[in-house]
Amino acid sequence: MSEARETATSAFVAPRLTEVCSSGQSGPDLLDLSSSHFDPIATCAPQDCCDAERVDIRKDYGGKIVRKANRYAPPQQLVPHRMTKARAVPMPSNSVLAPLYAGADLLDAFAVQLPAGVSDDVEELARAALERQAWWIRALTRVRDVVMATVAVKSSRAVGLAAAARGPVIGFFPVLSKSATELVVGADDWHLDFRVAIQLRANAANGRELVAGTVVHCHNRLGRIYLTTIAPFHRVIVQASLEQAARAMKI
């Protein structure tokens, strides 16, 4: 008779939770299987009551029923991480660099979707993209400086120091112009001239995006060889920098 009662009780309790949230009875009364107040039907599902207590029924080695109450905490639903990816876009037609597009040796642009509520300060966004670069980008820049020093091309440090003496810089890039929605950095050297426009604009999804457009004009054979060599790295670095800005500015 006792075994039948234990089996019947276990069948009711095992798949259910004792209802503490809506019952007027106390937790210990509800968990006492020998109490006349125990009602195995008075239960709630895990999703219905976050204050419920789970009844864990086990038998010890002597065959005695062991009752243990475990506080139930609803499992947190994991939200998948959605990394914002940069993508290739046409060069902005309204950029101040538009007159330089004709005859350019390199002309490309990339854009990244910005999270809602981020700053509308284009300089702050440009700094997030160009000053918080990944270690591998800094390593590639050092390699570039060492190699190009052999042909008398200015290092990134030299460009930045010279520019800082004349005006503002972002990273090691001299700031050449700035408006409410666009900031241009760049430098001239004997092998090539380059310009990068960082532009903040609305997109078709009723949000905002950050665009980086690059224009390069080569002066000689060295400039063209250099550009051909670095172009694949340039595209990867620009996209990674935009994605870094989107992550850094996320609130």
Rank of each mutant, 00 (worst) to 15 (best):
A102I: 10
G103K: 02
G103Q: 07
G103D: 03
D105A: 09
D105M: 05
L106A: 12
L107F: 04
L107S: 05
L107P: 00
L107C: 00
F110G: 00
F110Y: 15
F110T: 03
F110S: 08
A111H: 02
V112I: 08
Q113D: 14
Q113M: 06
Q113T: 10
L114W: 13
L114H: 11
A116N: 15
A116T: 15
A116R: 14
G117F: 00
V118R: 04
S119D: 07
S119I: 02
D120P: 04
D120I: 12
D121M: 06
D121H: 04
E124D: 08
R127C: 00
R127S: 00
R127A: 00
A128N: 07
A128E: 10
A129M: 01
A129H: 01
A129E: 01
L130H: 11
E131C: 07
R132K: 12
A134Q: 12
W135Q: 03
W135A: 02
W136D: 07
W136A: 01
I137Y: 04
A139S: 06
A139L: 14
A139W: 10
A139V: 04
L140S: 12
R142K: 15
R142N: 12
V143D: 08
R144I: 05
R144G: 02
R144N: 05
V146G: 09
V146C: 09
V147M: 11
M148S: 13
A149H: 10
A149I: 07
T150L: 13
V151T: 06
A152I: 09
A152D: 15
